[in-house]
Design a protein around this nucleic acid. Structure first.
Lengths: 113, 113
DNA sequence: CCCTGCTATATCGCATTACGATGTACCAGC
DNA sequence: GCTGGTACATCGTAATGCGATATAGCAGGG
């Protein structure tokens, strides 16, 4: 199976979205295209829209409705202070996690000469 | 809430366990203590034992039963060739993921002087 | 002799979450 | 009016971490 790649992404998507919103607001469809430029994040609307709804409900992002040149009005999302704090916490945890994991992945019993 | 830290671990635990088994066999309780030495991985038996059972069922690890000085006999786990291949695949994906995410986390509109 | 505690295994059940499938609405151009 | 891209949303399923719980062997203290 190859569904484990989905499991690797679990939880990371939230971090990725918050990180993408850190310095600028964006709307869902835009986020989708931005993140899909990264090879490891192949997301769909089914992932992004429910996540944004959850983040809104938890007051981590705020919404602003703006006009769209094509299609329904865009919903622009922006980090709230709580969201910035959350991003900071997740980032710290993430860095601790990568450090621990790389420590495991790089520990050689027979070190390179 | 702080349950998002659990979500960050999702899927990563499998990678961590496989990585820990890469160069040497180990039994469940031992893996538990090894991984808990890393600050980011605070696991319990409820996480490790079901995972090992699944890995065994998927033929990614093999089991060998050995005596224990205290308690029930130990079940020593070892990577199969398929498990080593799986570890290699997950590691590649993981590195791609970290690279993409760090790219997001480190992109500063106002770079440090 | 029992009681607590450590080692070591295993299972049940819940909450969370990514995502495929599907639907709706708006606008442009043919 | 039909197609196609933009932009939003929801339902259901599968996967998984983990708290709670159970069991068993051995050691040491009361």
């Amino acid at each position: 199976m190859k569904s484990w790649s989905a499991q690797l992404r679990k939880g990371l998507v939230e971090l990725a979205v918050l990180a993408a919103l850190r310095d600028q607001e964006a709307y869902g469809y835009q986020l989708l295209q931005t993140l899909n430029q990264l090879p490891a994040f192949q997301l769909t609307e089914s992932t992004v829209y429910p996540l944004l709804a959850r983040l809104t409900k938890d007051r981590l992002v705020s919404v602003r409705v703006g006009p769209s040149p094509h299609g329904p009005p865009r919903r622009y999302y922006r980090l709230t202070p709580a969201g910035q704090q959350h991003l900071h916490d997740m980032k710290s945890h993430w860095q601790q996690l990568t450090q621990s994991l790389n420590q495991l992945l790089d520990s050689h019993p027979d070190p390179a000469p």
